[in-house]
């Protein structure tokens, strides 16, 4: 600080004395980092399910601490800088933790508060986007040319011209072979697979309807419950 050097002869406190890391250390650090990158790619190719994410984050954290410690000189840095920088991670954790405390616990107490899909009826909440309501969490891939007979069951989407809905209508518009499938709820509704039929039926409804077009779409389920949607969609295909 200011008091120690009022004289021409400067003490130790005057100039900066940086710690110089040997080049060898840096090379070693680089090699470790590249090795860890290799490792993380390796882990990716082993199927661990949800643990893949955990392993990826773990390795990333190790890599990040190595970069911080040596490349960023945190090892030799002033204590405050270290504390403040690491402290910022603490706030990130608060941010994440508290937000997840909300998003993961919605609908636990009052089963109907905060859920996107009514657990009792399977109905998707109003306002989820009419497209989402109509098609559910999943969209079928449009058939490749030559795969005739597999009409996309998406309704024609953007009649009002406001919401471009890319793949909805995709097949319907082009695939003249199945004119009744798209936007033809009455027929689909008559089909033998009642739940999926309804879903498809509502797909034809207007995307911007103020009333609740297609709320009954049974294919609409919560993201984690993929199986139900699958069944619904497959049933439609079977018609």
């Amino acid at each position: 600080m200011a008091d120690a050097h009022a004289h021409a002869e400067h003490g130790d406190d005057y100039y900066v004395h940086a710690h110089i890391t040997p080049a060898r250390t840096y090379v070693l650090v680089l090699a470790t980092l590249l090795f860890l990158t290799f490792l993380t790619v390796l882990a990716y190719n082993v199927h661990l399910g949800d643990w893949n994410l955990f392993v990826a984050v773990l390795i990333a954290t190790i890599k990040a601490s190595i970069v911080g410690t040596w490349f960023m000189h945190l090892k030799y840095e002033q204590r405050f800088n270290l504390i403040f920088f690491l402290g910022s991670l603490f706030f990130v954790i608060i941010f994440l933790g508290y937000t997840v405390n909300d998003t993961e616990h919605r609908g636990r107490q009052g089963t109907l508060t905060g859920v996107r899909v009514d657990p009792a009826t399977g109905k998707r909440a109003f306002g989820s986007g009419s497209v989402l309501q109509a098609e559910g969490e999943f969209i079928r891939l449009p058939p490749l040319p030559g795969e005739a007979g597999q009409a996309g069951q998406e309704g024609e989407a953007d009649r009002d011209g406001e919401v471009p809905e890319p793949e909805a209508a995709g097949a319907a518009a082009e695939d003249g072979a199945a004119p009744t499938a798209a936007g033809e709820p009455a027929e689909a509704g008559d089909s033998e697979a009642p739940t999926a039929g309804e879903a498809a039926a509502e797909a034809g409804a207007s995307p911007t309807a103020p009333a609740e077009a297609g709320e009954e779409a049974s294919g609409a389920t919560e993201g984690t419950e993929g199986t139900e949607a699958t069944e619904g969609a497959e049933a439609t295909e079977g018609e």
């Binding site: 009649r159 936007g183 009455a186 207007s206 309807a209």
Partner: peptide, 18 residues
């Protein structure tokens, strides 16, 4: 169920269900 049958020439507007 307005989309059940659409009258010829009126395909541009999607009527909401009431």
């Amino acid at each position: 169920n307005p989309q059940a049958r659409i009258v010829e020439g009126f395909g541009n507007v999607a009527m909401p269900a009431y």
